[in-house]
Design a protein around this nucleic acid. Structure first.
Length: 425
RNA sequence: GUGGUCGUAGCUCAGCCCGGUUAGAGCGCUAGGUUGUGGCCCUAGAGGUCGGGGGUUCAAGUCCCCUCGAUCACCCCA
């Protein structure tokens, strides 16, 4: 017999952890929908070209894409992120701006897995297209901040920067490259290779050898146009006004090439591993145009679910698991009464489970205990004859025997009111 | 892609360095101790070709090589 397991960089999210994931998404949706963002579900794969706009110099595009040719000869790629798909959708459907959407789903990048980094990884995020108002930047950044707060996280640091407009960015990259070339012998071998591909990314090196050279590198702030500079001032003033704490870090460069002006990252300071960036985003004015749409500004962020939950673990917050059921039925006669009773209780709105295979009462009671239900309903020979059932409170061990017809109203008083799943017509 | 560490029951691990009778523990699971009652306790049971392949040896979980996988770091990024 062959045996299988998940392929590298993928894994099963089992219960109860999967219940926590679902709650995570629910809370996120609640936060961003309160700000007018609507749910958006793009396809999981697109034409390769949609994602090539992320940057020719990025590993995401050059080395990590899951691409293939489909049966129709199209060059397809599994999405490595959501932003490009949102922009493609905007260009395709031309919704009325501002278009504010949120999403939740898997992305795919062919990387070697490590803590908080998987080949299939899940993100939630928002994108707002069609307005370059700095107040929108503030709203987007503050919503991310608000979400972390609702999870219960305390040790999150917000880092912001401005990469300027396209021209500013170009001139800055030229200056950076010139500077790094002048001190190239002091850089690590890896940083020298990075310099050839993308001088901006050298700023991101974590090696000690590069630290001194990076510290003296020119700053982006000197290269910002008046428009970009005043935009950044307005963003910071807006964050100040909302009491959202942040740190300006002129070394913050985002991984994808489409970013312009405002960029930001949320760092979980409780995580000491290499993957402590739990979320990040920025402006990408120009991306929609690159994808064949009208010139459209845009801003958004994405949060890694794994990494954020790792931070929650580190801070011991957001302790959700699978939801628990209300009642557990123990039927020691033949199991058919449990089936009928469970059916009616579920319709009445009580989350109900039961035991199978005619196990002993002791065994079924153990199952009731493990289920987490607050109440066990016991049907043995006596109850079956009398048309009654015994209701046992599993935390107080008090129990009472009542006619089956009174069960639902009795449960209402024990486990609380429940709404019927289907209203009578 | 590069390097370090590690793969023994469902889970967490001991045994490996110094090869030698039927490979262990805790938790979990199943059953019994209660003639109809969970959690605590006691008892018993099920469950492993020691990741896979090759080699050394009279003998390999234990030593060597390869391979697959996991993990951590670099790289990259969420």
């Amino acid at each position: 017999m062959p045996s299988f397991q998940t392929t590298p960089g993928t894994r099963d999210i089992l219960p109860p952890q999967a219940g926590r994931w679902r709650e995570f998404t629910r809370v996120f949706a609640s936060v961003v929908e309160s700000a007018g963002f609507e749910c958006f579900v793009p396809p999981m794969f697109e034409e390769l070209g949609v994602f090539q706009r992320l940057g020719d110099a990025t590993d995401v595009v050059t080395k990590e894409m899951y691409d293939f040719t489909d049966k129709g000869g199209r060059h397809i790629a599994l999405r490595p992120e959501h932003t490009a798909s949102v922009c493609r959708a905007f260009a395709q459907h031309r919704p009325t701006p501002p278009w504010k959407v949120w999403y939740s789903g898997s992305n795919f990048r062919y990387e070697k897995a490590q803590a908080g980094r998987y080949r299939q990884f899940d993100q939630v995020g928002i994108e707002a297209l069609g307005a370059d108002d700095p107040q929108l930047d503030v709203e987007v950044i503050a919503l991310g901040w608000q979400f972390y707060a609702e999870l219960g996280l305390r040790n999150v640091q917000l880092i912001i920067n401005s990469l300027g407009d396209a021209g500013d960015r170009g001139r800055y990259v030229d200056a950076l490259e010139k500077y790094f070339r002048s001190r190239i012998t002091e850089l690590s071998e890896e940083a020298q290779q990075t310099l050839d591909r993308n001088p901006l990314r050298v700023l991101d090196s974590k090696r000690e050898q590069d630290a001194a050279v990076i510290a003296d590198a020119p700053s982006i702030s000197a290269f910002l146009s008046d428009d970009a500079a005043s935009h950044f001032v307005a963003v910071r003033a807006g964050l100040d006004a909302l009491d959202v704490p942040y740190v300006v870090n002129e070394r913050l460069v985002r991984g994808l090439d489409y970013y312009r002006r405002t960029t930001f990252e949320y760092i979980a300071t409780s995580l000491d591993n290499a993957q402590n960036a739990v979320g990040g985003g920025g402006r990408y004015d120009g991306l929609v145009e690159d994808l064949g749409g009208p010139a459209t500004p845009g801003i958004g962020f994405a949060l890694g679910i794994d990494r954020t939950l790792m931070a929650c673990d580190a801070e011991e917050v957001f302790p959700f698991g699978s939801p628990v059921i209300d009642v557990f039925i123990v039927d020691t006669v033949d199991g058919t009464r449990a089936t009928a009773l469970a059916h009616s209780l579920r319709q009445a709105g009580f989350a109900t489970d039961r035991a199978y295979e005619g196990r002993s009462m002791k065994s079924q009671m153990k199952a009731a205990d493990r289920s987490g239900a607050g109440v066990a309903i016991i049907i043995g020979g006596t109850e079956a004859e009398e048309g009654t059932c015994t209701v046992r409170n599993l935390s107080t061990s008090e129990q009472t025997t009542i006619p089956v017809g009174e069960l639902q109203s009795h449960l209402q008083s024990v486990v609380g009111p429940r709404e019927p799943r289907r209203r009578p017509s």
